[in-house]
Amino acid sequence: MRDFYGTSLPNGFMLGTAQYPSPAILADAFKRSGASVATVSLRRESGQNRAGQDFWELIRDLNVHILPNTAGCHSAREAVTTAYMAREVFDTKWIKLEVIGEEDTLQPDVFGLVEAARILSEDGFQVFPYTTEDLVVADRLLNVGCEVLMPWGAPIGSGLGLNNVFGLRAMRAHFPDVPLVIDAGIGVPSQAAQAMELGYDAVLLNTAVAKAGDPAAMAEAFAKAIEAGTLATIADPMEQRDMAEPSTPVIGKAFLS
């Protein structure tokens, strides 16, 4: 498994913590997923019920790497401020950097993303940028200090899978030594397996597990798919062909016509 800013992960499963029916189901899903990274966020806390404190205890007990996000930020400035707040609360240099540019698709504002990534990288953050499969943007992100790229598979929460397989394959080929994570859009385990078969190093998903009828079972299904896709990549898949080629030997076939 590839290193993410010097941290070697046991598998390529990064799992979100939002939208589960209950905290207990969230914890159960994480146990069955074997996921090594949990994404979290920051939201307004109430001095009366202090809900965030209970959540923090739950997450800490999962014993996984914490990847805070800047979800909901629509400008570089907002994302940078959120990242500083997240670093203090979660005590990690890791930040899943999201700068949203379009409401219907939640497509990243790649201009704001590069600017925020530059500021944060210069200040010692280890940035996981939520980006598109655009190679030029990817290059800019690497140039400002990112050592990981996280292109989207499809719009967040859509479950559409890998919308642009050509673009994602090109990205893998263009940046063979950069850890790449498919972030967002995964709906079913076969799509996660496909991402790993493309040579991606990890997938990050949330809704597909949290909104399943049985989140814990779905988490395990994704774990198996990611493992299968990882093993398939190591096993070096066959080349595709446009025409058929008989798999059963022709030589020695009886002449019966």
């Binding site: 979100g16 913590t17 994404t39 979290v40 404190q53 609360v89 979660f90």
Partner: peptide
């Protein structure tokens, strides 16, 4: 603004 850990994807 006072922010705390919260669920996130």
């Amino acid at each position: 603004e006072v922010l705390a850990p919260m669920q996130g994807g």
